[in-house]
């Protein structure tokens, strides 16, 4: 259980986290989704006691991170898989952590096997590792002390699709055994694949949270006609508010049956008519991303 309560972090005049509150429950994989620079890593560093908060708290099962004895055996943390001494071998990095936690070296071999790093790979220096291998090593390091809680920052970054699939299985098992997982990603797709619950953060604020089913639930209707302006006029005439979505399509909060009747009454031939599944989350995320882009990108189809 991780409880973040009204967390705020200022850097000079810049507010990186603004009144962030959420909780991660045991038995679920909680996905922390947001564009780069949204505050995901800062939140996780506060949880792990590396960054002092300006105000608010982040507690692990009600305990401040600094008060957890031998924390590696109770909460596994991976904050940046690339933050490793390039001149150390992968195995040696795990041995250092195992020694610190007071674990036998057999545990190192078990973890290497779990993350599918071969014996010869583990003896290579980390500077020769691909990002995917570093992620596997980082996950092995987080799991080394057999913790009941995991905090993973961008663990799927650099993994190939098979690797992401593997991680889903690993974390699914872990959560099913009662573990708590908080993992972050800047890619909606990764979060959709791996997480059960989703927290969306943008510009330091929580903008949405809920189960995956809730957030991906049907949100209105997507409709498209050969003659887009005729369709827009017909729907407006019927009192249905629409917003442009994708290539010449329209999105509306009205249900598909209402939209279909309005189009038929006006004699507009439709090309597509369907529930706008998941579009709500995707468009919200797109807008968040667009706001942090350096160049202005067209946010066509974004509802505000």
């Amino acid at each position: 259980m991780i409880t973040v309560d009204r967390l705020t972090k200022n850097y000079g005049g810049y507010r990186a986290l603004d009144d962030v509150s959420f909780a991660c429950r045991p038995g679920a994989v909680t996905g922390f989704l947001g564009p780069n620079g949204a505050g995901k890593s800062t939140t996780m560093r506060v949880i792990a006691g590396l960054t002092p908060a300006t105000s608010g708290t982040a507690l692990v099962s009600g305990v401040d991170y600094h008060d957890i004895p031998n924390p590696g055996t109770q909460i596994g943390v991976l904050l940046d898989a690339s933050a490793q001494h390039a001149g150390r071998t992968g195995r040696e990095i795990l041995v250092l952590s195992a020694l610190t936690m007071g674990l036998p070296s057999s545990r190192v071999d078990e973890m290497l096997e779990l993350v599918s790093l071969t014996r010869s790979e583990s003896k290579r220096r980390v500077k020769n590792y691909s990002l995917g291998m570093r992620q596997r090593l980082g996950i092995a390091n987080a799991l080394l002390g057999d913790p009941k809680i995991l905090v993973l920052d961008e663990p799927a970054n650099g993994l190939d699709p098979a690797g992401i699939h593997w991680m889903r299985g690993l974390l699914r098992d872990y959560a099913n055994r009662g573990g708590t997982v908080l993992l972050s990603s800047h890619l909606l797709h990764e979060i959709e694949v791996i997480a059960d619950e989703i927290i969306v953060i943008g510009n330091g604020r929580i903008v949405a949270e809920g189960t995956k089913a809730e957030l991906l639930r049907t949100a209105g209707t997507f409709v498209k006609a050969g003659d887009a302006s005729a369709l827009a006029n017909a729907l407006t005439a019927a009192g249905i508010t629409t917003t442009p979505s994708g290539d010449a399509g329209l999105r509306t909060q009205a249900d598909p049956a209402t939209v279909g009747r309005a189009a038929a009454a006006a004699g507009v031939a439709l090309v597509e008519l369907r529930p706008a599944e998941g579009a709500g989350l995707e468009e919200m995320f797109l807008q968040l991303t667009a706001e942090t882009q350096r160049e202005a990108v067209p946010t066509e189809g974004v509802t505000s």
């Binding site: 045991p26 305990v63 004895p69 031998n70 055996t73 109770q74 809680i149 009662g178």
Partner: peptide, 13 residues
Amino acid sequence: PAPVTIDTTRPGV
């Protein structure tokens, strides 16, 4: 699942 608790009596490093 049973609630996950932190053992604060465990020996430190």
